[in-house]
């Protein structure tokens, strides 16, 4: 099975259970919003998906590859944008990208070709020589998205990538990533607590206090009601 599969995954920090038997599947080329309030377990799930942590309870498959059995092959298929900024602010845009390319075994002409392609894809080609520090918040995020595409991943994981951005930047970045899934066939898992970033045809997985409350296509879950109302009533009922 391609795309992204999470099967019966649980994780605890000592006594505190952060994820409790979470299962969902995102088909290849789908955009799935992982919706949950702060503390729902989204970042923990991202840490497991990127193998910053490992768990013995449950299975994770990235593009059909079991991350526990073949961690390096699975990681090679993932592009990640973490909630925390991960740019080296004193390096240029190009240097940030070439460093990341090298971490994925790309160098020389191959790396240059990919860097040019992703910068053009994200409309940032003219900023290659600028220092990351000189970019505004929206462009920094855009650069991080460009970076996570360099090694041509098949699954994109974005952990609250629009936090701290103004409305215009949020809209632009949300649209870019939707395009990546609809036009380029990338599987996207987009963690957020902002319901206006989710389209009616997007897939949604609602996480609350470590449990998956519901999953499916947004319009089916809401039944035509605003997503925010559905989300609030679900999380209130579960509290």
């Amino acid at each position: 099975m391609t795309g992204l599969t999470v099967r019966n995954v649980s994780y605890a920090y000592g006594e505190k259970r952060a994820l409790d038997d979470v299962s969902f599947h995102v088909p290849q080329g789908a955009f799935c919003a992982l919706l949950g309030p702060n503390g729902a377990g989204k970042s923990t799930l991202f840490s497991l998906l990127t193998r910053l942590f490992t768990t013995r309870q449950g299975e994770i498959e990235i593009a059909g590859i079991d991350i526990a059995k073949h961690p390096r092959k699975a990681l090679a298929k993932i592009g990640v944008v973490f909630q925390q900024p991960t740019l080296d602010l004193d390096l240029t845009v190009h240097r940030n990208l070439s460093y990341f390319a090298a971490l994925h075994g790309l160098s020389g002409r191959q790396a240059e070709g990919r860097i040019t392609a992703v910068l053009e894809r994200l409309d940032m080609a003219e900023r290659a020589t600028e220092r990351a520090r000189d970019l505004n918040g929206g462009h920094r995020r855009r650069l991080e998205i460009a970076r996570c595409l360099i090694h041509v991943p098949s699954v994109l994981l974005l952990d609250e990538p629009t936090v701290g951005l103004d409305a215009a930047s949020r809209h632009a970045i949300t649209k870019h990533v939707h395009d990546l899934s609809s036009q380029d066939g990338l599987t996207v898992l987009w963690a957020t607590h902002l319901t206006d970033e989710i389209g009616p045809d997007d897939q949604v997985a609602i996480l609350h206090r470590g449990k998956l409350l519901d999953q499916g296509i947004c319009r089916d879950i809401t039944g035509g009601a605003p997503m925010q109302d559905t989300f609030l009533s679900m999380t209130r009922a579960a509290s």
């Binding site: 910053l52 390096r72 990681l75 925390q84 991960t86 990341f100 971490l103």
Partner: peptide, 15 residues
């Protein structure tokens, strides 16, 4: 690690 760039390093597909 606090800034996140350690995550970038540790999630690359190398041992």
């Amino acid at each position: 690690r606090e800034m996140g760039s350690m995550r970038l390093l540790l999630t690359s597909p190398l041992p």
